[in-house]
């Protein structure tokens, strides 16, 4: 079932001479884990802003085409209405936490919905638990590490129980282990709660294994869309400059030299297993 559907979506920022996204038509299904990637400035972030109504309501500008998110026409509904369905987590954790304690930050959206205090308390505790940061509830956000801060940001979006969660390069400031923990939290939410997940990411090495759908954008347009395997092994993806996982790269190098593995690996485990077979038979 489609939870996001766009048709010929074109958007131009106020004062810009050319559109940032152009004729984007795509469908994202309920429960999908989507990786949205492409070179800097390709329109990924703008597309994310469309999904929760920041475009056009916050940024103004000119939006053409149709966009339905969780059954709502984005052009017709305010950002706060969409916020019940779509949560957006940004790249820099520092600029999306504004309270003086973690729990207060997580409660921010619920306070805006005027949720009664008792219920809010429960919801906040649940969100903190899901993000694995219950013990940080009363800490001031600025004393936390980047990884912890980003988990607070996830919890604060999760508290609103959205159907869709969009994360715009959530790990670019984190060390690899911190990044991996974030991806695991996101994956858990996707698999256990069925939250449709859209992850904007350059570091596909780490993120690829969680996704079932990859969208590659280039110059404001959707260039490629399909399963991770299809996309990573395609010549187009390489030409656009997608950072193909090393496991897939190794597959390609071997293939070029006449050794073809049975299928295209995306993760290191898959690559190791495929190689194991070849090595055994050799």
């Amino acid at each position: 079932m489609a939870v996001i559907k766009t048709n010929d979506l074109t958007y131009t920022y106020p004062g810009a001479t050319k559109p940032s996204i152009e004729k984007v038509s795509l469908t994202i299904n309920k429960g999908d884990f989507v990786i949205l990637t492409g070179p800097s400035g390709c329109g990924k972030t703008t597309l994310c802003r469309c999904f929760n109504g920041l475009v056009p309501h916050f940024y103004n500008g000119k939006l053409e085409g149709t966009l339905t998110v969780a059954g709502l026409d984005v052009a017709e509904h305010q950002i706060y209405e969409l916020a019940r369905h779509v949560g957006l987590v940004f790249q820099n954790p520092e600029n999306q936490l504004f309270a003086l304690s973690v729990e207060k930050d997580v409660a921010f959206g619920l306070e805006n919905f005027a949720m009664p205090r008792e219920e809010m308390r429960k919801r906040v505790e649940w969100a903190l638990k899901m993000a694995g940061i219950s013990e940080l509830a009363e800490r001031p956000p600025h004393e936390l590490s980047g990884g912890q801060q980003q988990r607070v940001a996830i919890a604060s979006v999760l508290a609103m129980q959205p159907d869709i969660m969009i994360l715009d390069e959530p790990t670019s400031f984190l060390d690899p282990l911190g990044a991996e923990k974030i991806f695991e939290v996101i994956n858990d939410l996707n698999k256990k709660l069925g939250i449709t997940t859209i992850l904007v990411e350059h570091r596909l090495d780490l993120a690829a294994k969680y996704a079932n759908h990859v969208i590659v954008m280039d110059n404001g347009k959707v260039a490629l869309t399909g399963s991770p395997r299809e996309i990573f092994s395609s010549e187009e993806a390489r030409l656009i400059g997608v950072g193909i996982p090393k496991a897939t790269k190794l597959y390609q190098h071997l293939k070029k030299n006449g050794v073809e593995l049975k299928s295209v690996p995306v993760t290191t485990e898959e690559a190791a297993n495929l190689l194991r077979e070849v090595l055994k038979n050799a």
């Binding site: 706060y80 306070e111 919905f113």
Partner: peptide, 21 residues
């Protein structure tokens, strides 16, 4: 960025907001 984040978390959704504390 802060404003974007506030908007995304339903800033202004109701006239009389509640408070966790």
């Amino acid at each position: 960025e802060l404003a974007e984040s506030m908007e995304s978390r339903a800033w202004g959704a109701s006239k009389k907001r509640t408070n966790l504390y």
